[in-house]
């Protein structure tokens, strides 16, 4: 199949950047989206041009590094799928495909389609953990956890931190990420002792990084490759409300 690519090219964080058009004639419908970009890059290298920089690692939908905005949607047209798991059969022969980097003030563009998502790491480091003395592994069922709670915590833990939520949000807000990462622990007994501190610290860091606030557009949920629900944002808001009433806003 043939596709017409329109790809965002930008030399560095301070370059202005623009869309550049490329035609690819020999695309197999069985290729993944990233394989299609690999073919493009091989062509570019053979022609002596700079290849398109994009981030990827596992190519099996678990590392979260392959985020691209494809035709106006983070991770492309297929819901619940990362870019690396998207296949060219989801496009038609002769399609125009627009590829842009994830955009939010807190994600600066490194080059072309690659953005710096370390803001998410810093949010995680600010409170997305439990402080436990590590000894030998505890007994498997020493702490009973109800099945529905365990399932819910697992749903939150499905977050791969790819940044699609902030990229999809008209406010560039990271609320869905922060909600998933705080809820996965706040739901469980092990997370209780640091619950208030955790949610305050993570939201504080989110604000510091320059992410916007939530206007309940629910675009994040629609874009999330792991289908994480906005009800975790509601849960985080509730946790935060309680935490601020009890402990104030100072971290």
């Amino acid at each position: 199949m043939k596709v017409k690519l329109h790809i965002w090219r930008q030399n560095g964080p301070n370059d202005k950047g623009k869309m550049v058009d490329y035609n690819l004639d020999n695309v197999s419908s069985d290729m993944s989206f990233l394989e299609m970009l690999d073919i493009l890059n091989e062509d570019l290298i053979l022609k002596g041009e700079e290849p398109v920089v994009f981030e990827h690692d596992c190519r099996e939908g678990i590392c979260g590094s392959c985020g691209l905005v494809i035709n106006g949607k983070p991770h492309g047209p297929e819901s619940g799928t990362t870019t690396c798991q998207l296949h060219m059969r989801k496009f038609k022969d002769g399609d125009d495909i627009f590829v842009e980097p994830f955009r939010s003030k807190a994600f600066s563009i490194v080059k072309d389609l690659m953005v710096d998502r370390s803001a998410y790491d810093r949010i995680q480091q600010s409170g997305g953990f439990i402080s436990a003395n590590v000894g030998s592994a505890p007994d498997a069922n020493a702490i009973p956890i109800a099945k529905n709670i365990a399932d819910l915590a697992m749903d939150a833990a499905a977050c791969i931190g790819c940044g699609a939520c902030a990229a999809a949000c008209p406010n560039g807000s990271a609320m869905l990420f922060v909600a998933a990462k705080s809820s996965q622990l706040n739901l469980l007994p092990q997370g209780q002792p640091e619950k208030n501190k955790r949610v305050r610290a993570m939201i504080n860091q989110m604000e510091k990084e320059g992410f916007g606030g939530c206007s309940n557009y629910y675009e994040c949920e629609a874009a999330c490759p792991k289908n994480i629900s906005v009800r975790f944002i509601a849960k985080m808001n509730r946790d935060y409300f309680v935490a601020v009433v009890k402990e104030g806003t100072k971290v």
Binding site: H6, W8, M19, V69, N71, G72, K73, F98, E100, R103, S104, K105, A106, A168, C169, P170, N171, G172, S173, G210, F211, G212, G213, S215, N216, Y217, Y218, E219, E221, A222, A223
Partner: peptide, 29 residues
């Protein structure tokens, strides 16, 4: 205040943007 703050949190706009769940009423509050 929130509108201005949120507007600044996404200074660069997409060339192509499709909304999936954000309906007109939420985007025009």
């Amino acid at each position: 205040y929130l509108k201005l703050y949120n507007y600044n949190a996404r200074p660069d706009k997409y060339v192509v943007k499709r909304y999936i769940k954000a309906k007109l009423n939420s985007r025009t509050m």
